[in-house]
C-alpha cells in the first residue's frame, strides 16, 4: 500500500474514533447545529492561527471555537431570538468572516479548497501526530467525565442539584469538540465536519440499547465509512472527504430504512 494511503487511513480512523462518542453526545444534547457552527467558525481559527504564526492551526481553532461558544451564550442572554436562529447566524457569519479574514492574507500561500473540503490524501506524519494526540486526550478526558456528562445531558438541573460541576464540564465538552473539529478539518474539510460527527452516531442509534453501545457502533460505522470512502475515492477518483461522508450516509439510510432495524428505534 502506498504510504499516503496508509497515512490517510490512519488519520480518518483516528478522527472517527473520537467523532463516535462526541457525535453521540451532540445528538443526545440536541447540539447538531452547534457542531456545525463550531466547524464553520474554525476557518476563522485558521486565520487566527496563521496570524499568530503557529506551526499548527489547532490552537487558533480551539480559541475561536470556545470564543464562538461563549459569544453564543452572551447572545442567548441578550436577545429573544431562538437558539436555531442564533446558531444559523453564528454558523454562517463566522464562515463569512473567516473567508474575508483569509482573503487579507495574501502573503501566505493557502489552500482554501483544502480547508473547506479536506485533503486527507496529503496528510503528513506531523498531522497524524496531532490527530492521535487529540484522540488520546479526548479519550482520557471522556472516560473520566463520562458519567457526570451523561447526567448533565439528561437533566442539567438534576445534575447540578446532585453536586456535579455543570459549567466546568460543559466547557470541557466544548473544548473537546473544538479539538476534534481541528483534527477533522484535514480529513473531511470544514463544510463536512458536522456530518462526520452526526451521521455515524445517528446510524448507530438504530442498533444501540445503551449509550456505550451507541458510541461503540458509531465508531465502527465511522471507521467503515473512512475505509469505504477512501476505496471509492481511489477507484473512481472522487474527492476523498465527501466520499467518506457519502458512505456514512448510505450506512445511515440502511440503518433507518431496512425493515427489522428501525424497529429498535424508540
Amino acid at each position: 500500500m502506498d504510504e499516503f494511503i496508509l497515512l490517510a487511513l490512519l488519520a480518518g480512523v483516528g478522527v472517527t474514533i473520537v467523532a463516535g462518542p462526541l457525535g453521540s453526545f451532540i445528538l443526545w444534547r440536541r447540539m447538531s447545529f452547534f457542531g456545525d457552527t463550531l466547524a464553520h467558525a474554525s476557518l476563522l481559527g485558521v486565520a487566527l492561527g496563521l496570524l499568530l504564526g503557529a506551526t499548527n492551526l489547532t490552537v487558533g481553532v480551539v480559541i475561536v471555537c470556545v470564543g464562538a461558544a461563549a459569544f453564543l451564550v452572551v447572545l442567548q442572554n441578550r436577545t429573544r431570538l431562538g437558539n436555531d436562529a442564533l446558531l444559523g447566524i453564528l454558523s454562517h457569519g463566522t464562515l463569512a468572516v473567516g473567508l474575508v479574514a483569509i482573503s487579507f492574507m495574501d502573503n501566505v500561500r493557502l489552500d482554501l479548497i483544502g480547508f473547506l473540503f479536506g485533503d486527507i490524501l496529503s496528510v503528513t506524519m506531523i498531522d497524524l501526530a496531532w490527530i492521535y494526540a487529540t484522540v488520546g486526550v479526548t479519550i482520557v478526558v471522556l472516560a473520566k467525565i463520562w458519567r457526570p456528562l451523561l447526567s448533565i445531558t439528561i437533566h442539567e438541573d438534576l445534575a447540578r442539584a446532585e453536586g456535579i460541576q455543570v459549567t466546568r464540564l460543559n466547557l470541557l465538552f466544548m473544548i473537546l469538540i473544538a479539538l476534534v473539529v481541528a483534527a477533522a478539518m484535514k480529513v473531511v474539510g470544514i463544510l463536512l465536519i458536522a456530518a462526520l460527527l452526526i451521521v455515524p452516531a445517528s446510524a448507530a442509534r438504530h442498533y444501540a440499547k445503551t449509550p456505550e453501545q451507541m458510541t461503540g457502533i458509531a465508531m465502527l460505522i465511522g471507521v467503515f465509512s473512512v475505509v469505504g470512502g477512501l476505496a471509492l475515492s481511489l477507484s473512481f477518483d472522487t474527492p476523498a472527504g465527501p466520499s467518506i461522508v457519502v458512505i456514512a450516509l448510505v450506512l445511515f439510510l440502511i440503518s433507518a430504512l431496512m425493515p427489522g432495524f428501525s424497529r429498535l428505534h424508540q
Binding site: 445528538l27 443526545w28 444534547r29 440536541r30 445531558t153 437533566h155
Partner: peptide, 26 residues
C-alpha cells in the same frame, strides 16, 4: 438532598434503560 425535577424527558436519541438512569445517581 434528593431532588425530583418537575419535568424530565430523555432525548429519544439517547438509548437508556431505567436501571442505567437510576445508576447515574452514584
Amino acid at each position: 438532598i434528593g431532588y425530583m425535577p418537575q419535568r424530565l424527558s430523555v432525548d429519544p436519541n439517547l438509548p437508556l434503560t431505567v436501571r442505567r438512569f437510576i445508576g447515574l445517581a452514584g
